[in-house]
């Protein structure tokens, strides 16, 4: 079903566990994230396998209680997400540390309706000490020490795809990161797309369809900005400006939020704040 951004996000309630798709600097559904930040929901648990500024933005907007994942940062621009770092060090936000592979098998366990999946990576490290939901056990078949990775069950998955039709058939150009697993782990799926296409366009390349069940489809062109998708690179200047504001906090961060999150009435309005010259320069 094609729906407005705010209608789709009405599924997100205070205290829910929300998966946000994409990876590092690619394919995050940023239009949905900004919409969520505007709505001001509270006490969310974010599941972000390899997260970026979507985590910082939602923390800055006061939406987050807990972050579950293997990474929050902006690669070479910020070794650690600036707002995330401060909130965690202040004790305002709790981190549940996972290895990137734990995210994969935890989402799979949820999709399989299993309580956990076994994994070796993390044995002998500080993971079980930092994250007590990871349980050390002896493999009953071969007797090796292993970790039980609990199911990562999601209330809502917020995902990005390049195109979708009105039936929720979504197609990515590229890898789709862990997004398909996230969809299967979630009770409800919202897919942000650059293009809403007729069903016959989907049917020309069915092998590209990575999600084909019910989903709320939200049309948001350039919606991964400032992050990349298959057609645009990441906006390094914008990310740098965000990192600067995030590190400064206070008024600088508030100003960023006003300008890019709370101020714009919709995605088109947001793109005006970025500017057409910048957007065109990102197209590969």
């Amino acid at each position: 079903m094609v729906t407005g951004l705010d209608e789709a996000l009405a599924a997100v309630e205070d205290g829910m566990t929300i998966g946000v798709g994409g990876a590092v600097t690619a394919g995050h559904p940023m239009a949905l994230v900004r919409g969520l930040a505007r709505r001001g929901v509270r006490d969310l648990t974010l599941v972000v396998p390899t997260g970026g500024i979507e985590v910082d933005l939602l923390i800055a907007a006061g939406c987050v209680r807990k972050v579950v994942g293997s990474y929050v940062g902006v690669e070479g621009l910020a070794a650690v997400g600036p707002v995330f770092r401060r909130a965690v060090q202040d004790g305002a936000v709790e981190v549940v540390d996972l290895d990137e592979a734990h995210c994969v098998v935890g989402l799979r366990a949820a999709g399989h309706k299993l309580p956990f999946m076994p994994w070796r990576g993390g044995v002998g490290t500080s993971f079980p000490q930092l994250n007590p939901t990871l349980v050390e056990f002896d493999d009953p078949v071969r007797g090796e020490p292993l970790l039980a990775i609990p199911a990562l069950e999601l209330d809502v998955a917020l995902l990005y795809a390049e195109a979708a039709d009105a039936f929720g058939n979504a197609q990515v150009v590229g890898t789709g990161h862990m997004d398909g697993l996230m969809g299967a782990a979630a009770k409800r799926v919202v897919v942000q797309v650059d293009r809403v296409v007729p069903n016959d366009v989907i049917r020309r390349h069915p092998e590209r369809t990575w999600w084909w069940r019910e989903a709320a489809v939200v049309h948001a062109p350039f919606g991964t900005h400032p992050y990349s998708n298959a057609a645009i690179t990441s906006d390094e200047e914008h990310l740098e400006a965000f990192v600067k504001a995030g590190r400064a906090g206070g008024d600088a961060l508030e100003e960023y939020l006003q300008r890019h999150v709370h101020g714009p009435a919709d995605q088109a309005d947001y793109l005006e704040t970025v500017g057409i010259r910048r957007l065109v320069s990102l197209m590969i």
């Binding site: 293997s70 070794a79 770092r85 990137e100 990576g121 993390g122």
Partner: peptide, 10 residues
């Protein structure tokens, strides 16, 4: 606080 361990353990 660091960024997290990404896939280092695995």
């Amino acid at each position: 606080r660091g960024p997290g361990s990404v896939a280092l353990a695995t």
